[in-house]
Write a protein that binds this DNA or RNA. Structure first.
Lengths: 226, 226
DNA sequence: ACACAAACGGAAGAGGTCGACCGTTTAGCG
DNA sequence: CGCTAAACGGTCGACCTCTTCCGTTTGTGT
């Protein structure tokens, strides 16, 4: 049994503050998370880890002591916002009008994507070592699917709408946001407006087959290099 | 006057074969372009240059002799396909039915994006040192704008449709294609179907402000690092 | 066939990021 | 107040990619 495991880093499930830590460690951890969120929101998750550390006013080693790998930092940084996202969707489920609820939920999620490039990327990225992120995201997906079903049942949403179309929207929205930050807010709003208009039931013009998109399968494609 | 300029590399405007070259140079150039297209189509333009050289069966130096920078290789690789794209759009302009022409053009371009990740990226990337790419792309944009105007004039396209919405579609489509290659074809088709349905004129439900998206402004945002 | 220049390939340099090591500082407790 | 272990920060090595250098090979005109 290697010694390194005995002094386990404070990387508790990526959200909980870990009780038995020293005060400065807790403080630095919080500042790192904040710095990560700030940097990611602006520039996306491609920001180098050293920049996060500098922004937080700590050394690189401190960063890696709290978050042994890059991905764990990203996952921890967005764990909270993922919770907010789930909450927003669950809130929309309480709406008496299923269609209004769905529209509200999609608007909120798209807005979160637009306001925070990092969140958008995190939402659509696979984190093999962050089970809680996957869980929260799956919960969001499930609630959205419930919203979809209810809106279909009341006839406010076209029958050939598929739950995967929400993933489609999130991916499309992310694509729109990727470049040109100046225009991305307006672009996102407009894309969503287009999308929502097509969601209403119509008798003619059926849609092609839905795409088998699942959040957990994204970024899973084997990146070949040779 | 530096000596390097006297023996100018064969990088003629990124498309023409350059007449005065040795046969093996011409051959290698063609193989490099083909290898680049193949690799980019599959994995996008992030493939390292060394992989292109290996795939073409030449050394790295040979690659850089033909294409002094990475971007010039990418630009040269997609110059031809950009021409095809412009041709497809111009062809659609000849359609008697403006709406059908627009639909055909958008379908073709989206399909080209889906079939070739590299093309998609190249279309949406800024190439400061490849004026011919910018020119061709501007031409495509102009023709699409003409298609839009004609379809609006005949009342087949909603009046508040904006030319920038085509860029919006291309960005969204690119986002959908970025991950999960297995599902990307179906996803792209479905996204386009949703989009086209919203393009028909409606009396109610106006759209929000169009986004000031221009192809030449993409990837121009100053990437701050510190 | 020959000679010369064009073209080639392998290896090395430059730049940048991830992640680890190690001597030093500091919080927390008796 | 002083001790100990936890936590810290600067630095260093490994890896990867873009690009250049230089000795060698090969096409081509005579």
């Amino acid at each position: 049994m290697p010694d390194r495991l005995s002094r386990k880093p404070s990387t508790s499930p990526a959200g909980t503050p870990a009780p038995g830590q020293r005060a400065d460690a807790r403080n630095n951890r919080a500042r790192l998370l904040q710095a990560a969120r700030d940097a990611y929101a602006l520039d996306g998750t491609d920001v180098p880890a050293s920049a996060i550390a500098r922004r937080a006013g700590v050394g690189a080693a401190t960063l890696y002591r709290h978050f042994p790998t890059r991905d764990l930092l990203i996952a921890a940084a967005f764990s909270e916002q993922l919770g907010q996202c789930v909450a927003a969707v669950d809130e929309a489920l309480k709406d008496d009008d299923p269609w209004r609820g769905l529209r509200t939920a999609l608007t909120k999620v798209c807005r979160m994507q637009a306001e925070d490039r990092g969140f958008s990327a995190a939402f659509l990225t696979e984190f093999p070592d962050a089970p809680d992120v996957r869980r929260e995201r799956a919960r969001a997906e499930a609630s959205l699917a419930r919203l979809v079903q209810r809106a279909k049942d009341t006839g406010q949403l076209r029958k050939d709408f598929d739950s995967s179309d929400i993933t489609l929207l999130l991916l499309a929205n992310n694509g729109v946001l990727q470049d040109c930050p100046a225009a991305s807010m307006a672009a996102s709003r407009r894309l969503l407006a287009y999308f929502l208009q097509s969601c209403r039931p119509t008798d003619d013009t059926p849609l092609p087959e839905p795409a088998p998109l699942r959040l957990d399968d994204l970024y899973r494609a084997p990146r070949r290099t040779g």
